[in-house]
Design a protein around this nucleic acid. Structure first.
Lengths: 357, 357
DNA sequence: AAAAAAGTTGCCAACGGTGGCAATTTTTTT
DNA sequence: AAAAAAATTGCCACCGTTGGCAACTTTTTT
């Protein structure tokens, strides 16, 4: 455990003042070429790396970013963490995580305390916490940079990266319609989440293009868990008139639907098509593998982090140039197929579409 | 964005020196009762919270713990993060994450740089990175506290929390044997991982108690992914003589086995019992739900963090008193059942056991 | 009651950087 | 070639805390 070298060591050996070394470290423009090379050489030889705390103390920056999240499933946690670090690690930032409870009434204070305590340079907020407007307001007031990941453009460009869940759900609708489904059910997430309403509306809108409408009793609300997926599926599948397709607000609930279908002897996709949303680990592993929507999680993390750092480094106009919207994509697997019972009734176009898939 | 109050403000208002305030903050013993109360009152009124960076600079502590991991599946990431924070958050520590690549040759340097850069007070290392002895040696040499989570007691008490995978695998063996299985296959993880060999040996040992031996051609090596699970299952299930039960080194591979069994029309658990290890999100969602082994992830995180902090705060003997070994438990679900083909040949005891489950 | 011991408290110098401004050197202009 | 401008560099105070040591109180001992 050898002692770390300090800026003084570098300065002494390089024969310059420590202020100059500091300039080199921070890439200041006004350093002579030769001096810079000399200093950089010594830095490398000594394997010097600046003390983040001292730096922070002097410059009131911590080189620490925060990640606030609740449901680790919403955007796959590891993907996000790797994505964020991919961008910020090279720039000298580290990532501090803060799992929390969206429902908790102390959420705002909890998060603010978190930021203050570690003197974070900025925070990235994942859904559904990102939907909290009180938190956003508090962050804005606190003056520290933040970026929210969400399904809706809840905030100005520099503060948000949105995944267009509405469009994605509409695409799923199109896909369902082209398969010939007409009796379609939807298991929504909690209506208090924007992501839930976006997906539901997008789905309904998408279907309406094809003249399909979801019957009111075919819309159920779960809370995005496997268990509520099961509950809702039970209600949907123990009726006289069954839906031929079910779209669930996320993969967990879709998995619940598969479970119930299986236990009731309903064949997927022959008798019932099932689709989810997220493309989490479950989707590709289920039997049958789930058709779902994949959000470009890593890309969202990259964009958010880029915005974050630009914002920290006062490059506000640039932050506006970073894309703010990403498009999730439909991933077709085994759990969806043409609507058999509807074949006769359907028009030719739908039939063709169905065969193609 | 009001200015944070400093220790000076507190000192001035409370009418004491800042050294005294510092003592109160750090719970020093030699502070008069009345003074302490007075100071604490002011601290609360001002909502003062000490500047972590200044504190770190002066005391060479950062109040930052690091989490080094690679495979987020090995111990469910969110559980670990919450577990760690549950302990350390109240004590004023935050958690900095560092996903990495176990295979990378720069692993050690990468991790050391990570620690040095943020001046971490200590790191917690998850499997499989925790099995790297070169990393452990480097950490030891660097002198900073670390705790490894692993399946084997690779290190001294204060540096490790182990989950007894060997015993758990033996319990699975017992369970299989009591169900009457004799033609049993095992899909191991990479043999370079201790956890893999532990589980394999534990399983074999456990079976041997019941006089059951796994045929050499019934042992395949995967690399813990769904895909290799499929590959291995294909090899096992496209033979003349099928195993009646397969134990996979983890849930991902077990899911692969289910997939193959399904596509070959082999009924689980009627014709084939399948079990995994981890009890990750997949296990309970699969159809049929997977019998598996659950490690007390949260508890491991709690223990590790407790050790970590004791070690940081120089309480070495106490660190030895914190439990170092936890017992994973068998979780029986739907993917395992009595061996039908073996019923005749089996003895009464096994039959009874089989019926009970 | 004086001396010794124990318990509290305060002063000042670190910790390792950055920022403002002045000083110095180099380049450009007149 | 002198003056002005620009580029480069250095000095010193300061960021907000903790640690060492001395000073001051209070309590205990003799």
């Amino acid at each position: 455990m050898q002692k770390q070298s300090t800026i003084n060591d570098v300065a002494r050996i390089a024969g310059v003042s420590k202020r100059t070394v500091s300039r080199v470290i921070n890439g200041s423009l006004s350093v002579g070429e030769s001096t810079r090379l000399k200093v950089e050489k010594v830095i490398n030889e000594l394997k010097y790396s600046p003390n983040a705390q001292a730096r922070g103390l002097a410059s009131s920056r911590s080189y620490l970013l925060g990640l606030i999240y609740d449901n680790p499933d919403a955007l796959y946690l590891d993907d996000v963490q790797r994505g964020v670090l991919e961008v910020c690690s090279n720039l000298g930032y580290e990532l501090v995580v803060h799992p929390c409870r969206y429902q908790s009434e102390s959420l705002v204070n909890d998060c603010l305390r978190f930021m203050r305590r570690s003197k974070l340079d900025g925070v990235i907020v994942l859904p559904p916490v990102s939907e909290s407007e009180t938190l956003a307001a508090a962050l804005k007031e606190s003056g520290s940079p933040y970026v929210r990941l969400s399904s809706v453009a809840l905030d100005s460009q520099e503060h948000i990266v949105v995944s267009d869940d509405r469009a994605a759900a509409a695409e799923m609708a199109r896909y369902f319609a082209q398969l010939g489904h007409e009796k379609i059910a939807f298991i929504s997430g909690p209506q208090r989440y924007k992501s839930s309403t976006e997906r539901m509306e997008g789905f309904q809108l998408g279907l309406s293009v094809y003249g399909v409408k979801i019957a009111p009793d075919m819309i159920l609300e779960g809370n995005n868990t496997f268990e509520t997926g099961i509950e809702c599926a039970r209600q949907l599948l123990q009726r006289d008139e069954l839906p031929t397709a079910i779209f669930a607000n996320n993969d967990q609930m879709a998995a619940g639907v598969l479970k119930v279908a299986n236990s009731l002897g309903i064949k997927v996709p022959e008798q019932l098509s099932v689709a989810g949303f997220d493309d989490n680990m479950l989707a590709s592993r289920m039997i049958p593998a789930l058709t779902t929507i994949r959000r470009p999680v890593r890309q969202m993390a990259l964009l958010a982090t880029t915005k974050m750092i630009m914002s920290i480094e006062q490059n506000h106009k640039a932050a506006l140039n970073v894309a703010s919207k990403v498009a999730p994509t439909l991933v077709v697997r085994e759990s969806t197929g043409p609507c058999k019972t509807a074949v006769v009734a359907n028009n030719a176009a739908a039939l063709v579409a169905a065969r193609r898939s």
